[in-house]
Design a protein around this nucleic acid. Structure first.
Lengths: 116, 116
DNA sequence: ATCCTTCATCGATTCCTGTCAATATTGATG
DNA sequence: CATCAATATTGACAGGAATCGATGAAGGAT
């Protein structure tokens, strides 16, 4: 549903030059939803976090595994994990004192589908 | 080469818990390059611009075709087109008074490849 | 030459974002 | 209960980004 670049469901109006407002190929609301998802991954630290989790056992990791390799403060890592979680890309599970973060494959599929 | 989510070229070290700094699955430089490309498309207006151009004849459009449907000022549209062009996603060609912008399919492929 | 159209650039403003230090919260353990 | 360890939240700050109005540059047309 998120697909932006594939010729989508919306009708393609004849492109008239200058003056006629054509049907928008992509509605503002859908563009904003898609942009919100892309914003979540348009950050080097968050890309590194996703890659680190992907390469961990069971595609999950606790915060303590993630802070050191990236070299940023613990609150900063926590912040980025929150952004990714709120975007639906990570699932958070608390086990005892530890918080485990795992990838959400379906949401990554959404991401992959945007540009076909 | 941009692929972030596919198990990549880098070796996957055994994920030790807390204290041992593992090999980073994704280098900072590569993460920054990828994030820069994603930033270019992580904006609703720029997504709409890409979709509008894609649905135009020959997958190209002049600025005058793009300003009205999106409903933002001409300088703002010009700014966004510059961002997309500098990211390599659009190619700019001047014909007389008009500036034509066309998609760069290879660069869109890079985008699609990031999340496989 | 003069004017008009198209587009880019500049300057200013406002809002958003990444980062950290400090603090709070939560859970385990003695 | 007191304490420690692991995370989350808060507040502050600096830099970045989206937007607009005004202006500039380049090309056509009269």
């Amino acid at each position: 549903m998120l697909t932006v670049m594939s010729t989508a469901t919306s009708s393609v109006s004849a492109p008239a030059c200058c003056g006629i407002t054509p049907e928008l190929a992509l509605s503002r609301e859908e563009a904003e939803r898609t942009a919100a998802l892309l914003k979540a991954v348009a950050d080097p630290t968050r890309l590194q976090l996703l890659a680190l989790i992907r390469d961990s056992e069971g595609a999950e990791a606790c915060v303590c595994d993630l802070t050191a390799p990236i070299g940023l403060s613990q609150p900063t890592i926590s912040h980025h994990l929150k952004v990714l979680t709120e975007a639906g890309l990570l699932r958070r599970e608390k086990r005892g004192t530890w918080a485990w973060f795992a990838l959400v494959p379906e949401r990554l599929d959404d991401l992959a589908a945007i540009f076909r």
